[in-house]
Design a protein around this nucleic acid. Structure first.
Length: 739
DNA sequence: ATCTCCTTGTTTTTT
DNA sequence: ACAAGGAGAT
């Protein structure tokens, strides 16, 4: 099925499931629905449950990766791993790769970890094993080196009883190909297979599906070639374009009615995507209302752009949760965030630094992994000296040498620290660590001991929390908060499972991406990259940074491969079609990129939209480049072009309407641009001790204490739900609540 | 063993 | 601009 954006793909899939069960008498047990994200899986699960009712829970609705994990947990022993294997994320992979490069004595300047991992990932996505890679590399010196890196990387993974994300798919394919009994079992089990977002499948995923569907050939895939935006991750657009060739006799159904966007938005999207070659021709139409024109505004710099977006959200009088600001790169989020804080607009940022990539979370998880899987060297090494135990690099090196001599895991070597030559007094410190781990392990065997208790005990008994406390007030607060979120996650996991297993908890955590944690119930503006926005929709969408060189990116423009710009164009198409009722595209004439001011033209994608579909206001070609003093934001964002292009009914703003009129100045950021905002000490706070205030993240609470800390006020608030927090007034942006 | 300064490399990233 | 990793100093 070729389904355009907003044409109700998920609806079709879920109804097909219901149809199969109710009309065709298919056993729900025989149905499998595969998606790419947990979020999509969750959404589908919910809809299927509602539609199907009885038996719905025996349908497999899951992502590629979690399906594979489920299968591997049962059968991976035939591939030489144990069933409690660990899943390595990108950071783990990097760490492991550094070990590999060191071991092979390769110059990290010539053989970069990221490049090597990229090579390996591409290979795995194409189902090329280390051995095959080596064969293909014959002759080329660099390729040969890469092959040895790949080989060593795999053997290290195996030694650690770990798989990386790509392995999850590839090993499952391997399992099916080597073991016809297992394959047959799953072919019988999944007689009806449905795949969402099929345009994003890579070769390995394609093979996996072909194997599963090979017997009964009841395969239904849904996708949109125009929304393929993951080529850089191995997604193979040919999978969908050639579907009819791979499956002769397949019926292709096109869905071209869009139920999401207004006519003007949809027309703009169609106009942009029309410029791509090599796509299945289709033109989306809608019977929705015409809606307002798509807005386009160009600003002098990125700060003005961000400011205008946030102001427009405020002026639109829409709910915050109806608005999304999308951008090409995560780096762009900072300015928008700052402006939201400045204008007291609550926001939620998706992406950026992933929750599970944060140091404190990784530390705790490394402890848990060490406890669950003693063979995971990476995790053991991560926490052996965290908190500091006086076990340094030299001592660890000695143990590693000892371990590799005997071909044992690093943890086992630590346990036998006394036998390691030259450790001396350090051996006792090491044993202190392993004894603690053993202690935790034995507690886990008790029926009543839970995962969240374990986390709390780790914090307390290893001295981890003590070390965090020493880091400083605000740092400590946020880190502890993150850990608390992990504890909450553990508690809810315990609630969902009758016999909560630590390894299962770790697996769930390993497969969760950031978008999944987005809580839609809160009224906040959503900030995210265009990539993370796929599959979502919002009444009001702002596409920021529409500049040539940023979007499309410089890389794609200067690439020899014309298709690279086409992928960016598809990304733009995805962005435009997220909008239901209102779309504004914005650009900045100058922007700081990698520490340098960059001047850019308006994005070619904007130019591709015919003028009559756009309500646009651009800056004159040459403006005085004199830095303006926008100390109190007196420079109207689109002031140079007067009120032109502004939607009617928008209340005016400008000098005087600023909520933060009185400030002492302490300009810190936006170098090169006169004085701008940032965190400044307010003369008065607008609240006093005993008042009720609200915080963007912690909610509502009572002010317990206000201390003048010189440059800023330090405020202690007891929040109703988040507990007592100490924070700096200019940073926290507390707002008085009248009750 | 740990702290501090310097060099380095910076698209996107469902899992 | 900015963060992270590595080398050299304490």
């Amino acid at each position: 099925m070729l389904a355009g954006a907003g044409s109700g793909k998920t609806r079709v899939l879920t109804h097909r499931i219901a149809y199969l069960i109710e009309e065709k008498g298919v056993n729900p047990w025989n149905i499998m629905a595969i998606t790419f994200t947990n979020k999509a899986a969750g959404e589908m699960r919910e809809r299927v449950d509602r539609l199907v009712g009885f038996g719905a829970d025996s349908i497999w609705v899951s992502t590629f990766h979690s399906s594979c994990v489920r299968i591997l947990r049962r059968h991976i022993e035939s591939l030489g791993f144990t069933t409690n294997f660990t899943i390595y994320d990108t950071d783990d992979q990097k760490t492991l790769m550094r070990h590999v490069l060191k071991k092979l004595d390769l110059d990290p300047k010539v053989y970069k970890d990221r490049a090597m991992l990229g090579l390996i990932s591409t290979a795995k996505n194409e189902l090329v094993s280390a051995a095959e890679f080596e064969l293909n590399a014959s002759g080329d010196f660099r390729q040969k080196k890469a092959a040895s890196v790949y080989k060593e990387y795999q053997s290290q993974l195996k030694k650690n009883n770990a798989l990386d994300f790509d392995d999850l798919i590839m090993k499952t394919v391997e399992l099916f190909q080597n073991n016809s009994e297992v394959l047959n079992y799953y072919q019988e089990r999944f007689r009806y297979i449905m795949v969402d977002e099929y345009q994003d499948t890579n070769t390995a995923q394609f093979r996996l599906i072909s194997l599963l569907a090979g017997k009964y050939k009841n395969l239904c895939v849904v996708g949109d070639d125009d929304q393929s935006i993951y080529k850089f991750r191995g997604a193979n657009i040919e999978n969908i374009l050639n579907f009819e060739k791979s499956y002769p006799g397949a019926r292709v159904i096109k869905l071209e009615e869009n139920y999401r966007s207004s006519q003007n938005i949809l027309h703009a999207a169609n106009e942009v995507i029309r410029h791509n070659r090599g796509r299945k021709d289709k033109t989306l139409w809608t019977s929705n209302e015409e809606g307002p024109l798509v807005q386009f505004k160009q600003f002098e710099n990125a700060a003005e752009e961000a400011d205008a977006i946030v102001r427009d959200i405020l002026n639109s009088a829409s709910d915050y949760q109806d608005c999304a600001v999308l951008y090409r790169t995560n780096a762009q989020s900072r300015l928008i965030e700052e402006k939201c804080l400045q204008h007291n607009v609550p926001y939620r940022m998706v992406g950026g630094v992933n929750f599970y990539q944060r140091k404190e979370i990784k530390d705790i998880l490394a402890y848990l992994k060490t406890i669950a899987n003693g063979r995971d060297d990476l995790s053991v090494l991560r926490v052996i000296n965290v908190p500091k135990r006086g076990i340094g690099a030299t001592s660890i090196g000695k143990v590693q040498a000892f371990a590799s001599e005997r071909e044992m895991g690093i943890y086992d070597a630590f346990c036998r620290a006394k036998a390691v030559p030259g450790l001396g007094k350090t051996a006792d410190k090491v044993l202190g660590f392993t004894e603690k781990i053993e202690d935790f392990r034995s507690r886990l065997t008790e029926e009543t001991y839970s995962i969240h208790e374990l986390i709390e005990d780790i914090l307390d008994e290893t001295g981890y929390q003590k070390e965090l406390e020493a880091e400083g007030e605000i740092e400590y607060q946020t880190r502890l908060e993150n850990i608390e979120e992990l504890i909450n996650k553990a508690i809810s996991f315990e609630g969902e499972h009758e016999h909560p297993e630590l390894s299962e908890f770790l697996e769930e955590v390993a497969l969760v991406a950031d978008v999944d944690r987005m809580d839609e119930s809160e009224n906040r503006v959503t900030l995210m990259t265009l990539h993370s926005a796929k599959g979502l929709e919002f009444p009001r969408v702002y596409l920021s940074g529409m500049e040539d060189g940023l979007f499309p990116s410089m890389m794609s423009i200067s690439s020899d491969n014309k298709e690279d710009v086409e992928e960016e164009r598809r990304l733009c198409y995805v962005g435009i079609t997220r909008a239901q009722k209102f779309l504004m595209m914005t650009a900045a004439r100058q922007r700081m990129v990698n520490g340098e001011t960059r001047y850019s033209k308006v994005s070619r994608f904007v130019e591709e939209i015919p003028g009559e579909l756009l309500d646009s206001s651009r800056l004159e070609q040459r403006l005085s480049s004199r830095a303006q003093s926008d100390f109190d934001d007196s420079g109207l964002p689109w002031g140079k072009s007067g009120a032109a292009g502004r939607t009617s009914g928008v209340s005016s703003f400008g000098p005087g309407s600023n909520a933060y009129a009185s400030k002492t100045s302490k300009p810190v950021s936006t170098p090169g641009f006169g004085k701008a905002f940032t965190v400044e000490k307010p003369l008065s706070l607008g609240y006093k001790e005993g008042d009720r205030v609200s915080h963007i993240k912690f909610g509502i609470g009572e002010v317990k204490e206000i201390k003048d800390g010189g440059r800023d006020f330090e405020v202690t608030v007891h929040f109703d739900h988040a507990g007592v927090k100490k924070m700096f007034a200019s940073f926290a942006k507390l707002k008085l609540v009248r009750e």
